[in-house]
Design a protein around this nucleic acid. Structure first.
Lengths: 239, 239
DNA sequence: ACCTTCCTCGCTGTTTCTGGGGAGTGGAAA
DNA sequence: TTTCCACTCCCCAGAAACAGCGAGGAAGGT
């Protein structure tokens, strides 16, 4: 596992990429350059409409998707609540589902060591950049220590490219909410009922309803809960 | 404006920081090391409850806060919908409010050039790391070209520290949700009605209601929308 | 073995939300 | 100037969610 990696060259190659498919080739080359078992970029999207590329076996990837493992995968859950890159050992593997997931992952060739970098983009986009390997703890610690920063940059550039290519698919860049709409969504997210929200904002409940409706429309939401969820995941409101 | 910057030393210093106040000293030192006019870290929070540190004058900062400029600042608006670091020249300064904001910023000593890096953390956290300077376009382009990557890493480490210090404020942890509860919350967050969720999960609506109620209880939520919002902000569900 | 948690199903009545109308102001942009 | 958009207010009927009560079986951990 090693050491002489030309970061500049990698990032330049990444920058020069012009098609989504090329990322797969690049990540394989990266895996070889770093001499680790696996390297994966994984754009997580609850809709199941996820994009990813990497060096896991097709069988594992298929199984992961079919079983909806992104819901119990401690790597995803853990990274989602963190900002730091995180070593898999520091995650919570205590639940039964997590342990089962772990043994199965090992059986499918995923390394016993792992290092994952959470990445977040606009509109609540969330992705992971993961390096995995089979080795002892000390060796792995040296590796992450040595290459952590490089991996952050690579992850950043990877996501940049992925966003660039996927941008066309996501025309749903919702209009920004008006201040009043933000207020309404925020208070609703805090558990207030419509009556309470209207009271807090000193407006009639009818007026409030107009805000909720227009927010729902702007966000393409089906109901209030959906609208609040979307507003949150797009970072339009903070609770 | 310059060139010999010891990135390792900077990041180590950042990592060793143990108090929020120290970040202010570090950012001043950084500004001097990079020989630019201003360097600012700005945690943007829609609530107005923002944290920031940097080298802008106190007058400008106060005015910014009082006037709620974060709502019209093209840097914030532009960065919020981007993932790339962005040069200020590429932002949209066309609106009247933006032009007024710009001339005023210049008057308060903000540089005519700027480079801002959006950073996103868990729960929709959003921050900016900005470098600003007074110089010509070509010189500025050289600078951003030369130091863009370093700045990304510095921004990352800055935000890491800021999150670390702020985390202590909100240690609320709740019991984990059961798989079925997660399913229910997730589908509700996706805009499904109770009937649709029950149908999707192939359970009766009555059963579904029990899940929602127990999730609400576990999360300390007042209603379904609140429960979904809390589940999201705690990273228990991914939408 | 016991206790806890999870999963599943049922009833009733009350409160709240939703969707469909409508109308008028003021400010900012084209 | 006209045309947007944000903000404010109003009514009504049907649909949906809420609160509170109940039950039993399966699986896991102490």
């Amino acid at each position: 596992m090693a050491n002489t990696v030309n970061l500049d060259q990698i990032l330049q190659d990444l920058d020069a990429t012009s098609a989504l498919e090329d990322l797969q080739d690049i990540i394989v080359a990266l895996r070889d350059a770093f001499r680790v078992d696996h390297m994966v970029y994984h754009w997580v999207d609850s809709a199941g409409d996820q994009y990813g590329c990497g060096t896991y076996s097709d069988e594992w990837r298929d199984r992961y998707v079919v079983q909806n493992y992104h819901r119990i995968d401690p790597v995803i859950i853990g990274c989602f609540q963190r900002f730091h890159p995180v070593d898999w050992k520091r995650l919570d593997w205590s639940s039964k589902a997590a342990r089962h997931f772990h043994t199965e992952a090992l059986a499918y060739g995923v390394g016993n060591q792992g290092f994952s970098i959470p990445i977040r983009g606009p509109n609540g986009q969330f992705a992971l950049f993961t390096v995995s390997h089979n080795c002892e703890d000390a060796i792995w610690a040296d590796f992450t220590e040595a290459h952590g920063r490089d991996l952050i940059l690579i992850a950043h550039f990877f996501n940049r490219k992925a966003l660039e290519f996927e941008k066309t698919r996501q025309p749903e860049q919702s209009r920004a909410l008006s201040p009043r709409e933000v207020d309404a969504m925020t208070l609703l997210a805090m558990g207030y009922s419509r009556a309470q929200v209207a009271d807090t904002l000193s407006i009639s409940e009818h007026t409030l309803r107009v805000y909720i409706e227009s927010a729902r429309f702007k966000l393409g939401a089906l109901n209030t809960t959906h609208a609040v969820a979307r507003a949150m995941s797009r970072g339009l409101i903070v609770v």
